[in-house]
């Protein structure tokens, strides 16, 4: 018994020693990381206070009839049921958004890649051109550019003035239901700067000796592009495609400015986010708009998951 007590006392002593050491380690860890967290604090506060918190509240509100002023009443899945069964504008907005995504992302990426390849050919004054081509992306999301676009593509805008030189009398592109979405796609493609910069970096990482070897073997430039550049660039293409797709789903400003918030003419520019905004702030249906927002989150998640699942069949990682 005595020995047992003795042993357990020793155990406790050891344990205490260990726990003190563990606490010491934790304290040291904390001491070394605290400044890091301190510097992260603004971001952490922003993330929890301005992103995660509101997102969770909106999830709750999507099951209510919240109208911004009166206290929300729980309505179960009513909002979701209505979206799925009795909302023609949801379908219209979804169609416009999908059209926009499907058109703008491939065109933008292709354009960005072409410009990147051109710039990669050792142009003089590369930094200058890179900055110039990147400029639209910096301005792109701004209200001013959407206003400018309106001026360009309006009935008496610059585009029609140019066309009239060739005897073509164009319609008012931005306010004609058959063309308005394409002016928005064009606006998006014009903002090719950030994928271009990333492509350029990707191109620079491809070892030149591969090309040298290929041309020694008599491979044409096209074949080199097809067999070397593209496969080695797939991770970058993949990254750009995912980021741009998510961005395209979330596009709001151009449609809001160009259509004056209506999504017109005839819902032809009714982006999903614009419809969501109309429901929330125009029609005071914050609960319904929250449900719309969460459906968009799910749709984007599905698209992203699908990209990642298919990526193993076409994305080539060099390892």
């Amino acid at each position: 018994m005595n020995t047992a007590t003795h042993a357990s006392a020793a155990d406790i002593a050891v344990e205490r020693h260990q726990s003190v050491r563990a606490r010491g380690r934790l304290a040291r860890l904390w001491a070394s990381n605290a400044p890091g967290y301190l510097f992260l604090l603004p971001w952490l506060l922003g993330f929890f206070g301005l992103t995660l918190g509101p997102a969770l509240v909106s999830l709750y509100l999507s099951f209510t009839d919240f109208d911004l002023i009166r206290a929300p009443q729980w309505t179960g899945a009513a909002n979701y049921v209505r979206i799925a069964t009795a909302d023609p504008k949801f379908a219209a907005a979804m169609q416009v958004t999908l059209t926009y995504v499907v058109l703008s992302v491939p065109f933008k990426l292709t354009f960005a890649l072409l410009v990147a390849i051109a710039l990669n050919r050792g142009v003089k004054g590369l930094t200058f051109y890179r900055a110039i081509f990147y400029l639209p992306s910096l301005l792109g999301g701004s209200v001013a550019i959407a206003v400018l676009w309106r001026q360009l593509f309006a009935g008496d805008g610059l585009v029609n003035a140019a066309l009239s030189q060739f005897g073509i009398e164009g319609p008012s592109w931005i306010s004609h239901p058959n063309y308005s979405i394409y002016t928005l796609v064009a606006l998006s493609v014009w903002q090719f700067g950030s994928p271009m910069i990333i492509f350029l970096a990707g191109l620079r990482q491809i070892p030149t000796d591969m090309y040298e070897a290929a041309s020694l073997d008599g491979a044409s430039k096209f074949r080199q592009f097809y067999k070397i550049t593209l496969p080695l660039l797939t991770p970058v293409i993949f990254f750009n495609a995912v980021v741009q797709t998510i961005d395209a789903f979330k596009a709001f400003t151009p449609a809001f400015i160009i259509s004056g918030g209506t999504g017109g003419p005839i819902n032809s520019t009714l982006f999903y986010t614009l419809y969501l905004y109309q429901e929330a702030f125009g029609n005071f249906r914050m609960g319904y708009a929250s449900a719309l927002a969460w459906i968009l989150v799910v749709i984007i998640a599905i698209f992203t998951a699908f990209s990642f699942l298919t990526s193993r069949y076409w994305v080539h990682y060099d390892d």
């Binding site: 008012s172 306010s175 004609h176």
Partner: peptide, 14 residues
């Protein structure tokens, strides 16, 4: 024509 009318954003400027 309708495409000209659709430029009107329901404000003085447009």
């Amino acid at each position: 024509p309708p495409d000209v009318q659709a430029l009107d954003k329901n404000d003085i400027e447009t």
